[in-house]
Amino acid sequence: MPRRSAGLLIFRYSEGEPEILLVHPGGPFWARKDEGAWSVPKGMVEEGEDELAAAIRETAEEIGETVEGPFQWLGEYRQPGGKKVLVWSVEANPPIDQSRIVSNMFSLEWPPHSGRLQQFPEVDRIAWFRLDQARQKILKGQAPILDDFSGRRNRSA
């Protein structure tokens, strides 16, 4: 069975246009990567865990804030590596302050083969992006999430 992650596409309105909250992964591999490196906040669904509950939990672990609904189902997205990501959209109310990020940490042997274990944040920064900017920043495999959000928004306008 493919691995499953669950996440939230968090948005707010600025001057009448939606902005999307994306997270930048921490650690040395991602340190110098920007375009095509950002993600919606997401993480693994534990065995038997409700997927929406996992999305809320993982988001809180990555940004340090618990986001409250109402949540709208966006879809299930297959990533290039085979993992499935289940995503809900939610308007941040009140908006999330990107300067107050508090993320979980993970351990990694760094530099490779050094025998030294170092701690890195799961997410090293978060930022709000207009949809056109978010399309440049987000991981290629997650671009359909933005398309579905944009399409749903246009149908309801």
Rank of each mutant, 00 (worst) to 15 (best):
22 L>K: 05
1 M>H: 05
121 P>I: 09
130 R>M: 12
15 E>Y: 00
61 E>I: 06
146 L>T: 00
56 I>S: 04
45 V>Y: 02
79 Q>K: 08
123 V>T: 06
135 R>H: 09
85 V>D: 06
101 I>H: 06
25 P>D: 03
63 I>Y: 01
59 T>G: 04
54 A>L: 07
90 V>S: 10
52 L>G: 05
23 V>A: 09
104 N>T: 14
4 R>N: 12
73 W>K: 10
149 F>P: 01
21 L>T: 07
66 T>P: 04
95 P>R: 09
85 V>R: 00
29 F>P: 03
145 I>E: 02
18 P>K: 04
136 Q>D: 15
15 E>M: 07
113 H>R: 14
100 R>I: 02
149 F>Q: 07
108 L>D: 08
4 R>H: 13
25 P>E: 07
76 E>N: 10
61 E>H: 08
69 G>D: 05
89 S>I: 05
100 R>V: 10
112 P>F: 02
148 D>T: 10
82 G>F: 01
13 Y>A: 06
85 V>S: 08
13 Y>N: 11
19 E>F: 03
153 R>V: 08
105 M>C: 11
107 S>R: 13
151 G>F: 02
36 G>I: 04
52 L>M: 07
145 I>N: 04
91 E>R: 15
135 R>N: 08
22 L>I: 06
143 A>S: 11
129 F>W: 05
124 D>G: 14
5 S>C: 08
79 Q>P: 08
77 Y>G: 11
50 D>G: 10
49 E>S: 07
79 Q>F: 01
12 R>F: 07
155 R>F: 09
95 P>T: 12
52 L>F: 08
24 H>L: 10
22 L>N: 00
74 L>P: 00
98 Q>I: 15
101 I>C: 14
144 P>H: 03
20 I>M: 04
142 Q>V: 05
34 D>C: 01
33 K>Y: 01
34 D>K: 03
116 R>F: 08
35 E>S: 10
89 S>P: 01
154 N>R: 13
156 S>G: 07
28 P>D: 12
153 R>S: 08
2 P>Q: 11
115 G>C: 10
52 L>N: 07
91 E>M: 14
64 G>R: 03
150 S>L: 11
86 L>N: 12
28 P>I: 05
33 K>M: 12
45 V>F: 03
68 E>G: 06
128 W>H: 04
45 V>P: 03
51 E>V: 12
50 D>N: 15
100 R>P: 02
